[in-house]
Computed example of a mutant assay.
Amino acid sequence: MAISLASLRRTTATQPPRLLIYGPPGQGKTTLASEFPAPVFIQVEDGTPAGLEIDTFGHLTDFPSVMEALVSLDEEEHDFQTVVVDSVDKLEALVWAQTCADNKWSSIEDPGYGKGYIATEAVWREFMELCNVLRTKGMNVVFLAHSSIERFDDPTTASYSRYDIRLHKRALALFQDEVDAILFLNQDVTTKEEKQGFGKEVKATGGGKRWIYTEGRPSFVAKNRYGLPHKLFYELGNGFAQMAPYFPNTQAPAMQAEAAE
């Protein structure tokens, strides 16, 4: 078909969101993901937070098992509305192992010059394509990841440390390109100076409040395509309810009573 001005159409976002939620351990990433509508978990990481009940395929320890779980969601009848991968940094080790098996390498470093990490992209894309198939069928896609503190060399100023997603840079670039939002979940931290002897000591304090950060800052990576506020106060049970009004074709659930009071 010939392309011309007559072929122009107006469009807008209509598909369910693809999100990556990351942060330090114990901040509630898994709990937040469980608030999404009818979630099913692809658990690559062993263990579930105490008091939380989830639907899961169990602890998956190899890449083919992860793909089989995703295929079952594609091919079999079910009522799940969200697929959660917990976590993609643990999945990375399985991707490396699969890449090594495909190429008969003893380790991902075998081919040298970073070629092993380049080869992982084909395996990652196979995984991502299947997640996207589920999205086209109406499922939300939520990836969970841990954070690491990395040195960032900013060409416009001095280098500094920031929170980043615990993935190799090639996998990280793929996720940054693919997902609609990267959300950083962390507690608020303030500092104060206290006099200690002849000097001053800086101590970290904070009220223990957790925030969902949706826009990047020098100290952490984040983004979103939905016009979310730059941060949202995260109260357990109400995280998804706060974000849902910004997602395409998504009905927001009622906020829990504690948050409404």
Results as ranks from 00 to 15, higher is better:
residue 2 A to W: 05
residue 2 A to C: 08
residue 3 I to Q: 10
residue 4 S to W: 07
residue 4 S to V: 02
residue 6 A to Q: 05
residue 10 R to G: 04
residue 11 T to I: 06
residue 11 T to E: 12
residue 16 P to K: 11
residue 16 P to C: 07
residue 17 P to F: 00
residue 20 L to G: 07
residue 28 G to K: 12
residue 30 T to K: 06
residue 33 A to S: 10
residue 33 A to I: 11
residue 36 F to M: 10
residue 39 P to T: 04
residue 39 P to R: 03
residue 40 V to E: 05
residue 50 A to F: 15
residue 50 A to N: 13
residue 52 L to C: 09
residue 52 L to P: 09
residue 53 E to K: 06
residue 53 E to A: 04
residue 60 L to R: 00
residue 60 L to H: 01
residue 62 D to N: 15
residue 66 V to G: 00
residue 72 S to P: 06
residue 75 E to D: 15
residue 77 E to C: 02
residue 77 E to I: 10
residue 78 H to V: 11
residue 80 F to I: 07
residue 90 K to R: 09
residue 91 L to C: 01
residue 93 A to R: 08
residue 97 A to F: 03
residue 104 K to D: 10
residue 104 K to C: 08
residue 106 S to G: 14
residue 110 D to P: 04
residue 113 Y to I: 05
residue 114 G to I: 10
residue 118 I to K: 07
residue 120 T to V: 01
residue 122 A to P: 00
residue 123 V to N: 01
residue 123 V to Y: 03
residue 124 W to S: 10
residue 126 E to D: 03
residue 130 L to A: 04
residue 136 T to V: 05
residue 138 G to C: 05
residue 142 V to L: 14
residue 143 F to I: 02
residue 148 S to E: 14
residue 151 R to A: 15
residue 156 T to F: 04
residue 157 T to E: 02
residue 161 S to E: 15
residue 161 S to W: 12
residue 163 Y to E: 03
residue 167 L to Y: 06
residue 169 K to V: 12
residue 170 R to Y: 09
residue 171 A to L: 04
residue 173 A to W: 08
residue 176 Q to M: 07
residue 183 L to P: 00
residue 183 L to R: 03
residue 194 E to S: 04
residue 197 G to H: 14
residue 211 W to C: 07
residue 211 W to A: 06
residue 212 I to T: 05
residue 212 I to E: 05
residue 213 Y to H: 15
residue 213 Y to M: 12
residue 215 E to F: 03
residue 216 G to M: 14
residue 217 R to V: 11
residue 219 S to D: 11
residue 220 F to S: 07
residue 223 K to G: 06
residue 224 N to L: 01
residue 224 N to K: 01
residue 226 Y to R: 06
residue 231 K to L: 12
residue 234 Y to C: 12
residue 238 N to R: 09
residue 242 Q to F: 07
residue 244 A to I: 09
residue 247 F to W: 00
residue 247 F to I: 02
residue 249 N to T: 03
residue 250 T to H: 00
residue 252 A to E: 13
residue 253 P to M: 06
residue 254 A to G: 01
residue 254 A to W: 01
residue 255 M to I: 11
residue 256 Q to E: 10
